[in-house]
Amino acid sequence: MIQYIIRRLLAAIPTLLVISFVIFAILDLAPSDPTGNLPMTVPSEVREKIRTSLGLDQPMHIRYYKWLVQFVVNEPLNILQHSFGVTVGDAENRTRILSWATRSPVIDLIVERTPQTLWVVGLSFLFGILIAIPIGIVQAYRQYSLFDQIGTFVAMLGFSVPTFFTGVVAIIVFSVQLKWFPMIYDTTLEITSWNNFVLQVKQMIMPVTVLAFYQASQLSRFMRAAILDNLNLDYVRTARSKGRSESAVLMIHVLRNSLIPIVTLIALGIPTIFGGAIITEQIFRVNGLGQLLIIAIEGADIPTVQTLTFLFAILIVLFNLIADVLYGMLDPRIRYD
């Protein structure tokens, strides 16, 4: 197993290098201009100077190499220095990946925005799972019952109606009409007292609910299908003939076998949490990673877009590996040697 993981990790290195180059090439070859958002009054010589100061006069492969060194060597060393106080090499002259828009290190921006995303999107993912699994189980166990029919209808609604619609409806109903929850997510709110905690919970309810509804809709369908696949298998009948109670049959035999595809699905869904729910974050003004990415794209802030996209790529490759390993642990028929 350890050998398999190491082999997979080694194989991931060339994959990620290719991915990073493809991302870089796409962004670089796209006709975007970091000075495009400046006022029309700024003369073209000044614009040219700005481009030079950003290093845009250098050839593409040089810029790719520089970014790669900054990402792979400089930033990890920097994190090492800040977290553990270990200084390796010349810390003073080490260049970092700087955002073209804010001139601050991209990693710092990401670190700043990660908690909001994790709280809102992560919690919604968690709630989505917690809702979807029991609903899927009951739906499958009582297939074609009224509960199943309603569940199917709601799930269909959940994943066919986009979050930018449900989100806006939620804002109109609960913020504008009923005035229960704030319309805008306030990131500066610090939880220092009970009151602030209540405020925090209140502002999280709507985005989390909208996203959790969407996640649960999809996941409950998978859960229902996975249970149905197993429910009529012969080993379930064997378990009943052993004289086990229905709940033991369902929870021990059926559920454990049905969870294999679900766990994989969940593991592969975790990178998308970090990716943030771009649209939902926009609607509720949660300044998380999704919003950072959107702003960076709009402002042609290529280092930020490049770094964020590549981080997502790393997470996806990593969680793919985790899903495969989990699969092997959950299903004894799968062996990695």
């Binding site: 298998l233 012969d234 064997t238 378990a239 003939s241 004289g243 454990r256 299903d331 004894p332």
Partner: peptide
């Protein structure tokens, strides 16, 4: 159902398909 379950030890079944009638995830 509970009384029936208590009687199950006395009457058992050997199933047709030896592959599918055993839970693949149990030793």
């Amino acid at each position: 159902p509970s009384a029936l379950r208590a009687l199950r030890p006395k009457m058992q079944m050997i199933f047709q398909d030896p592959q599918d009638s055993l839970n693949p995830r149990m030793t």
